[in-house]
Amino acid sequence: MAKQASAQKVTIVALVENEPGVLNRVASLFRRRAFNIDSLTVGRTHRAHVSRMTIRVDAGPEYAKRIATNLQKLVNVIDVRVLDNEPHIERDLALIKVRSDDTDSRNTITEICDRYPARIVDIGPKVAIIEMVGTEEIIETFIDEVRAVGIVEMIRTGVVSMGRGIRIHDADITRRDLARVAAQSPNGNGRIV
């Protein structure tokens, strides 16, 4: 299923509170608004209570903006940014299990991997596992080449993304932090700003 990398693809990055049910809220929003998304990844950040989502949308910036304004309405979503024209780095990781039961296939795998930022992380008499990190596009191209050898299993993480330069996208405090501070304030006056 080689897909042409679309010029229309837009990336949305959302900082969300690391709380139970947040992923469910986001997924539910996409479902009920019938938003078509290409990929969604969630992971931790350096802040204990903040997670970060990268959402790839196979549509124009207008559509991405609609998704972003709806995401921003969720109380647990701290901040949303559409990486449209902003220069940014993006990475996808794939683990690909391929046939390696003859010399030919082993040679081909090694040869292909040499030409890509890919490495063989496991190899046995029957199959090998390749780890490949890169942009979505380059992984697509790599997969197309490896397909000839015989892919037997595969997983991709989906794209994660980060804007270049010093425009920092971070949130150092969450709702829960604030509320806890308020509740613990000794004089009962929990005003914290």
């Binding site: 969300v16 709702r175 604030l178 509320a179 304030s185 006056n189 929990g190 914290i192 700003v193």
Partner: peptide, 13 residues
Amino acid sequence: FVYPEGDIVLPGY
């Protein structure tokens, strides 16, 4: 029981 007085601050809201 301590009721948080003052303004509510919700970072995402």
